[in-house]
Design a protein around this nucleic acid. Structure first.
Lengths: 224, 224, 224, 224
DNA sequence: CATGAATGAGTATTCATTCAT
DNA sequence: AATGAATGAATACTCATTCAT
């Protein structure tokens, strides 16, 4: 596998270097874009400023993205990949549907908190994203919803959950996670993330879990 | 009451005509802007197109607003005034805090439904609104929240409500009303507004009302 | 000649009233325009503001002038008519060419002083005046120059004036009169009009009058 | 001196190239602007047309100036810098105050002749120039005036000059130099610059120089 | 005659994108 | 690959002029 083993091996090495550089540059762009987007929004973020912030030239940016919109997608994609990775990972292996749901919600909220700018952008810049991008986002949200609604359906079957409409309930959980980003200007002065999560979990459990089981889950919430 | 009765009466008449024209023109602009904003967003809505849609000239628009941003504020103001009027009106005179809260939430959701575009815009176009406009919007949301949190505090004192954090709970109610606009793309295929409201009221009542009182309010929700 | 004498007489009366109204309205416009033009220049003077200043409606202005440029011409014409009237009047009947020239220069300067705004405008707004208007202005200046150059030629023939180029000399006198308007920002702090006139007459007489006659005209200037 | 000699040398080279390009571009803009401004005036000169005339794009122009007014200042600055450089240079080292004044006046007129458009613009476009720009122009004119008035005071002390008011006299000299641009439409048909200068110098010397010394300076003027 | 609301052509400036070096 | 100067389409806002009342 040394450089001289084969021209093929050589090429692979070059490819690896290239891929690493691409990842590195996209990371630079992502970081700079996240900062500027949260300060100014998409329209007011100038490519010139972005280049300055990222410490590269305008031309370099266009070597790694095709349009300004791609930069927005880069940022939004980042949070979506986090959702797709973190939420199932947190839920995996937990048998009890209430515990599983709580773990998923908690993970979802933590991702929102870690990417607050991006979470906001997904709401604010809908109109700056192309139809395809938009549809992909909605598709992915539906996918995440289904993790929640599967729990709820499970729990309703086993009698742990009160009879609710799983589609609204799961969409509502997603909404409450996003709420941490959307209403951060208001909530921030009252709570930190963990407090917020506990408070909302308390709300969610009272709303969803069958009355007779609620006391078993008091450890999940703030005012148990 | 003839023209010559008094110069004063005449002047008043002229002023009244003027005021009526202003209101009419602003209405034209509001209607056209609401349509175009929901289709294209603020940045992509051109004044030229707006003029065409409203059936007036560009110059006429600028006789009634000072900047493009004013047009956005016109639309957002409209929904805010509806909140301020409809929500307290719906809650007024209802003694029972649960019933009062439910009536307020229902009214809030109905306003959102009637102004779905504007409700969305308030989230999407934050960055297009000046600092002052933005602060005014937040201020007004806090004001509406307080109608809800007052109910909740009342209910907690009388033991009808479970002990919850009123600030989060009321903010959550507001969020769930806005959710009808924010997630309309998803919810619309499952429910109409009334069903949505009932479903969320059921959720809210289970979450907030003390267990022993819940059955008294089954009439407020869908799956009683 | 009473109203009932003839339909003709009646018409004449109506015509007279009309002419008087036109003169009155043009006077209103002239006064207001002179004020605004001196403050803001032609381009920045808005018809709307002019109407407000004149205390009439925009429509009324356009009943008495055809274009915005006409308003400029109105103001410039006013000063030109003053030149044409005042300068020859002041020179008339004075035999001695030096005295006559001095009287003309003095009158010219006084007109400039009384219409400083208009005198400036003739230099500043050349580009806002149509070719015809511009040519008429130049034509009239040449005409006034000739009053001065006639004096100079007279004086040179009689030996009172030193031999000079009459075309430059007369143009220079005109220029020195205009100078009171053009450099008013500077001269104003040093002199009033009369002092300025005397000072320049002293300069002019030394420059033009033959050495042996100069002392006869010391009464015309400041530092005699 | 190769590229690799020092990174420092390289950077300096880049900066030098940049500075040279800026100068070149500003020169292109200056030339084109001078042409269009003299034809159409400031308001009617469109940036689009300027770009076409200069052979660059609109965007390029705005890479070298910030506003349209800057272009006007570019042109006016050019003549002012010429005044500041040429006039003192021409006067330097000449002992005799009359000779010195004559040399300064001659140089001033030559600059006016070489920049006739710009000299005119300084009078015509006052209202298009911001307060600061305007004040700077007046300040610089006062500065040039002082070169002339210093000569005159010198000459009066030594008895070569007749007693005159130095402030008016120097302002008048400046005015007579500007006159070549302001009245070019008239003077051009009668004289060339040199003839004009000689004619005015003759006028100036008769007006300022004490009678007994006048014949010593007949070489300075046309009709000695 | 007087009014002033309506008109819409006209224009400085911005900024995403390209491409020669 | 990286640079950043050059490009030019795109667009909010103004204001002289008109004309129905």
């Amino acid at each position: 596998m040394s450089q001289s083993d084969s021209p093929n091996g050589n090429l692979e090495g070059i490819e690896a270097v290239r891929a690493a550089r691409i990842e590195w540059r996209l990371g630079q762009i992502l970081t700079a874009a996240t900062k500027l987007l949260s300060q100014q929004g998409f329209q007011k973020m100038l490519i010139t400023d972005l280049a300055k912030e990222a410490g590269v030239s305008v031309g370099t940016i266009y070597q790694y993205v095709n349009t300004k919109e791609d930069i927005l997608l880069l940022v939004v994609n980042d949070i979506i990949e986090s959702y797709r990775h973190e939420v199932p990972a947190a839920m995996e292996g937990i048998e009890d549907p209430v515990e599983r749901l709580a773990a998923g919600f908690r993970a979802y909220c933590m991702v929102v908190d870690a990417h607050r700018t991006a979470a906001l952008l997904a709401y604010q810049e809908t109109k700056s994203i192309s139809r395809e991008g938009r549809e992909r986002l909605m598709q992915l949200e539906v996918e995440t919803n289904s993790y929640f609604s599967d729990c709820i359906k499970d729990g309703m079957r086993s009698g742990k959950f009160a009879p609710v409409e799983p589609a609204v309930a799961s969409a509502t959980l997603t909404m409450l996670a996003h709420m941490w980003a959307l209403k951060h200007w208001y909530l921030n002065s009252l709570f930190d993330v963990k407090e917020y999560i506990n408070s909302q979990l308390s709300f969610i459990i009272r709303a969803l879990v069958a009355t007779e089981h609620q006391k078993s889950y008091s450890h999940l919430s703030a005012f148990g």
